[in-house]
């Protein structure tokens, strides 16, 4: 009974939050609703007994959405409404409905045809974390390693992009030195 109540409560809350995220024109509302929705999703993991994934969902998405807030702060006045450019409303609604239906069908079809078999049965008396570890280092070893390499590449690229001219400090330079640097077109 509790599980059903919790499921419907959080299902309603999650959908409501994401609806706000999509429809509002206020950046702060959108970001807050997004964060709330992401945190409410973790409730489903808890209901299913996947505590570890639930907590990871909370930690990862609070951090990720927090970074979005930081961008929001840099680019908008978040207390004002954003003027949105609205295209053809029918195309937008039609396309998004179609996508949503397609995604549901893709995931529901194997369930309806009962074509799902658990290839890797749950190991008895192993905790959540151990199970995640085992599955990561057996079945999903290659995606796991590829993800690691991708993150490394992204990190190197990030350092290269952000690290240009990091050896000079505008705070420590006198104004003449800054002018000289500008003339050298080092600072664009």
């Amino acid at each position: 009974m509790f599980e059903a109540v919790a499921f419907y409560l959080f299902a309603f809350l999650t959908i409501a939050m994401f609806f706000i995220t999509v429809t509002t024109s206020q950046a702060l509302y959108a970001l807050t609703a997004l964060a709330a929705g992401m945190i409410f999703i973790s409730a489903f993991f808890f209901i299913l007994g996947a505590d570890f994934l639930g907590v990871i969902q909370i930690i990862v998405y609070t951090g990720a959405v927090m970074a979005l807030y930081a961008f929001g702060m840099m680019f908008f006045d978040t207390t004002r409404k954003v003027k949105e450019k609205r295209g053809n409303r029918y195309i937008i609604v039609g396309l998004s409905t179609l996508t949503a239906v397609l995604i549901v069908v893709i995931f529901a079809a194997p369930m309806v045809s009962k074509n799902i078999v658990a290839l890797y049965p749950v190991i008895e008396d192993a905790g959540n974390i151990q199970l995640v570890g085992v599955i990561l280092f057996t079945k999903y070893l290659i995606p796991f390693e590829v993800a690691a390499i991708m993150l490394l590449v992204a990190m190197v690229a990030g350092i290269v992009l952000a690290g240009k001219k990091m050896d000079i400090s505008l705070t420590l330079m006198s104004s003449e030195e800054i002018k000289k640097e500008e003339n050298k077109k080092v600072l664009s």
Partner: peptide, 28 residues
């Protein structure tokens, strides 16, 4: 007594940062 106690505590404390963040951003 969840078996991921420490992660849960830290995660919740992390969510707590939304208080100052949202308060600061909404204050105009």
């Amino acid at each position: 007594d969840v078996n991921i106690g420490i992660l849960y505590v830290l995660g919740m404390m992390a969510v707590g940062f939304y208080g100052p963040l949202l308060g600061g951003m909404a204050s105009a």
